[in-house]
Design a protein around this nucleic acid. Structure first.
Length: 812
RNA sequence: GGGGCAGUGGCGGAAUGGCAGACGCAACGGACUUAAAAUCCGUCGGUAGUAGUACCGUGUGGGUUCGACUCCCACCUGCCCUACCA
């Protein structure tokens, strides 16, 4: 009988004792770095973790059997808010909460039977880890990739911390972690210059990443081509604007600044002072959700000031309006009401002039008094001074050339991507290693004083303030530069900073000279296959790419990208087709499943029940199929047959053919991460083998080969049962050290094929013919078919198409 | 408003432009059993027919092709991302 509860712990212990999955540098072997996104130690391993990790493990095991030296590490993204919330709510220290969770999750992870090399485990909350997170920060700081500025930033009132732009999501602009709508706050925060890399981050060449992730990142970065144009106020101040439509410059009849624009107070005339101040006040207090809602009627006020349109020297009024955002572009726009809907609405409401300067050829001649909407299309330039008459296709380039020649602007590219805000006003994170000195300003903590350790004796007060700020002594220090009294930065780093480089720490988690051992780096990097959820497309996956490129420019890392191939798994939903959650009561516990069925069954089912990249709702009866399969595997190979060795050569030939055909498809599907068809292929083969077994194939040479190949193909998916059967069928330990079998092309070949006979593309007959049938023979056979005759109606076919080895299509 | 992905039996899914529904779940019928579980055998897209078989069928409508689940165009539905982005 198959008893997974007996064999699984036994083999897990033996593999661990033998160090079977230790991955060490071996220059003789090609390397393969397989990486699965590291989990947050929330306390319990979710079925989603199993869904993410066990297929990745199977793929890594497959690569290992193919002869690669495979590194498949694991660790914990151990800093973060839930730990701190547990501290506030239940009085448990985040450290003990986190580390006891890690202990439990380690046990759960080990129950998977995955080939993790535990010697390489890295925990981002260990001082030996975050010492280097801090070290990276300092490298960025010293090289002007980290800077501090005051800005209106997103703040989660529930988590009591600022967030990066990427961590604010959805229409209601809610916090990525807790779902609370964020508010804007003016704060001085640390940023990384991700925007320096905007252009490079758009380049996905030589990367095998899903189209969807490329699209998400490309849209997130949102490159737009246009021109930057300098307008001057009547007092001579410059106002720079970005426009994607330089060809509409002659139609710019007013300017709009964001209410927060620094020039507003200077431009505003005394008469307009009160109104402008009131509007700015109102804009400041209005939530972002309200302010950014598109359907709200546009509002604004006149500043009293005027600018000069640099192409036609027209005097145009300067307004402020909250539909212009300080955070995008320059916070100022030239308004072209005739050709931009927003500007059009604004101009209508406030009776501002509208001038048509573009006449698209497929639009009836535009008359000002008949306009009820802007005409955003491009077309021939009209009313545009020297450029009047320029055809639509040339308008953009001609306009840019014109402003460049006049020295009032130039071609420009703008991105929506913002710099990465990394300050968090929380305790449980890596402290930002900066000392604020009243004389020297912000000064980096010297390398030999790293890590800046988190003090453990902190108090939890429900004030929303970081305990680091409230700590009586920790803040006080001396300036590393001048030696005078100074204060430590009390903000910690975004945990995405920790996870931007964990793949490097896995290489040498105990190394203390550098973030990683360069020898390990040179051997293992880049990551060959990276797997994880698509929800990280515009967060972690952008950050880690930025991090790699920034480090490359500092001489720390090498190569263009950190991860060569990326694959995303889908999500396992509850049986009710809803996202699993405790409150819905639809959570599936992997611990319970392992207890009931064994890890191998859970692994097999997770790989079989859905397309991995799509995921599907859980089906608790579906897992029965995987249980039955493994039970069947067990007795197929272990229970001798009464009629052993009595099969005829025909049967044995068929056995060999099926085995090698399956090996071919399984190999291909493992390569492409098509796990569901790997499993179904093996199920199918097992059915065939049982047919052959009842026909007397058991105990033959062909059977022995089938057994050996079957178990090896099974090994990556169900490592325990494969090892057990490998031993029980008399093979030497360990199956996981065996080579992936080679396909015997000769054995896989078919002798006969089923030739499909179609008439006008419709199936009419199937003929069994020799595989090497000639085209003429095939056509003759097809035309002779009884099922075809009635359709010929005695006449000659118009055309007969023969697809070698497949079909004959008769066109009548 | 913009962009992306998906749509195949009761369900999950399979199918280099060439036999639609492999494999599995559920369901139904049968064998074994005192009984149950386990296991085994069989049926399982729709309509008509005892049957051979015929017709219909991969969200809808067109197109390309000897031939379309697959490629192209338009649309519908669902999900995801994004959004006064200048």
């Amino acid at each position: 009988m198959y008893h997974p509860d007996q064999i699984e712990p036994k083999w897990q212990k033996k593999w661990a004792d033998d160090g079977l999955y230790h991955a060490d540098i071996d220059p003789e072997k090609p390397k393969f770095y397989a990486l699965t996104m590291l989990p947050y130690p929330s306390g319990d391993l979710h079925i989603g973790h199993w869904y993410a990790m066990t297929p990745s493990d199977a793929r890594a095991r497959f690569k290992r059997m193919q002869g690669y030296n495979v590194l498949f590490p694991i660790g914990f993204d151990a800093f973060g808010l839930p730990a701190e919330n547990a501290a506030i709510q239940r009085g448990i220290h985040p450290k003990s909460w986190t580390y006891s969770n890690i202990e439990n999750m380690r046990r759960q992870l080990k129950s998977m039977g995955a080939m993790f090399d535990w010697r390489r485990e890295a925990i981002s909350a260990d001082p030996s880890y975050y010492r280097w997170t801090q070290w990276f920060f300092i490298q960025f700081f010293k090289n002007n990739l980290a800077y501090r500025k005051e800005a209106a930033v997103d703040f989660c009132p529930n988590c009591n911390t600022t967030l990066a732009r990427e961590q604010v999501q959805g229409e209601d602009r809610h916090c990525e972690r807790c779902g609370t709508p964020v508010i804007k706050k003016n704060l001085t925060q640390w940023f990384f210059r991700t925007t320096n890399y905007a252009e490079e981050l758009l380049d996905f060449s030589d990367m095998d990443w899903p189209e969807q992730v490329q699209t998400l990142q490309t849209n997130w970065i949102n490159r737009s081509e246009g021109a930057s144009v300098i307008f001057k106020t009547e007092q001579g101040d410059q106002i720079e604007v970005f426009t994607t439509r330089p060809d509409t410059l002659w139609g710019a009849t007013f300017m709009v600044l964001a209410p927060e624009h620094p020039l507003v107070s200077k431009i505003t005339t005394p008469e307009q002072q009160t109104e402008v101040a009131a509007y700015r006040e109102q804009a400041e207090h209005m939530g972002d959700i309200q302010r950014e809602s598109t359907d709200r009627e546009k509002t604004g006020v006149f500043t009293g000031g005027y600018a000069i349109n640099p192409v036609n020297n027209e005097r145009i009024p300067i307004w402020i309006a909250d539909y212009v955002l300080m955070g995008y572009g320059t916070g100022a726009i030239m308004a072209v009401p005739a050709h931009d809907q927003r500007d059009f609405e604004f101009a209508q409401k406030y009776a501002l002039p509208i001038v048509v300067v573009i006449q698209p050829s497929d639009v009836a001649p535009i008359h000002l008094d008949e306009m009820d909407a802007a005409v955003p299309a491009s077309g021939e330039m009209v009313n545009s001074g020297p450029l009047t008459g320029t055809p639509g296709e040339q308008a953009f380039d001609q306009a840019v050339a014109y402003i460049q020649q006049k020295g009032v602007g130039e071609r420009a590219v703008n991105y929506r991507l913002r710099d990465w805000l990394i300050s968090r006003q929380r305790y449980w994170g890596a402290p930002i290693p900066i000392v604020h000195c009243p004389h020297c300003g912000p000064v980096a903590v010297p390398d030999d004083e790293l890590p800046v350790e988190l003090p453990e004796d902190v108090e939890w007060l429900p004030t929303g303030e970081s305990p680091l700020k409230l700590h009586p002594t920790w803040r006080n220090t001396t300036c590393p530069q001048c030696g005078g009294p100074a204060e430590r930065e009390t903000d910690t780093m975004d945990t995405f900073m920790c996870s931007s480089w964990y793949h490097l720490r896995y290489l040498s988690p105990d190394y203390d000279q550098y973030p990683f051992d360069p020898a390990e780096y040179d051997y293992w990097m880049p990551v060959d296959t990276y797997t994880g959820g698509i929800e990280h497309a515009t967060m972690h996956l952008i950050y880690t790419r930025f991090f790699h490129k920034a480090c490359r420019d500092l001489g720390i890392t090498k190569g263009k990208e950190p991860m060569r191939q990326l694959r995303n798994q889908g999500m396992v939903l509850g049986e009710d087709n809803e996202k699993m959650s405790k409150s819905r009561g639809n959570v599936v516990s992997p611990d319970d499943l392992v207890q009931a069925y064994g890890a191998d069954t859970v692994r097999a089912y997770l790989m079989f029940f859905a397309r991995w990249e799509l995921g599907a709702p859980w089906n608790s009866s579906g897992i029965e199929g995987s249980v039955r399969w493994l039970r069947k595997v067990w007795y197929t190979f272990l229970e001798p047959a009464r009629n052993s060795q009595s099969a005829n050569p025909e049967i044995l030939r068929t056995v060999r053919r099926k085995v090698h055909q399956t090996l071919e498809s399984v190999t291909r599907d493992f390569e492409t991460l098509g796990f569901n068809t790997v499993v179904s292929g093996l199920m199918e083969l097992l059915n065939e083998l049982n047919t052959a077994k009842s026909a007397g194939a058991f105990g033959t040479e062909a059977w022995a080969e089938a057994e050996s190949l079957y178990l090896r193909m099974l090994a990556p998916i169900c490592p325990h049962i494969a090892e057990e059967l490998w031993e029980r069928t008399g093979h030497a330990y360990s199956i996981h050290d065996q080579a992936w079998p080679e396909v015997d092309e000769e054995a896989a070949k078919e002798d006969e094929i089923t030739l499909i006979i179609q008439v006008n593309g419709k199936l009419r007959d199937r003929l069994t013919v020799p595989v090497n049938i000639s085209a003429d023979e095939a056509k003759v056979a097809a035309l002779a078919s009884e099922n075809v005759q009635p359709f010929l109606e005695g006449g000659e076919p118009k055309k007969v198409i023969y697809v070698p080895g497949r079909l004959v299509n008769i066109v009548v």
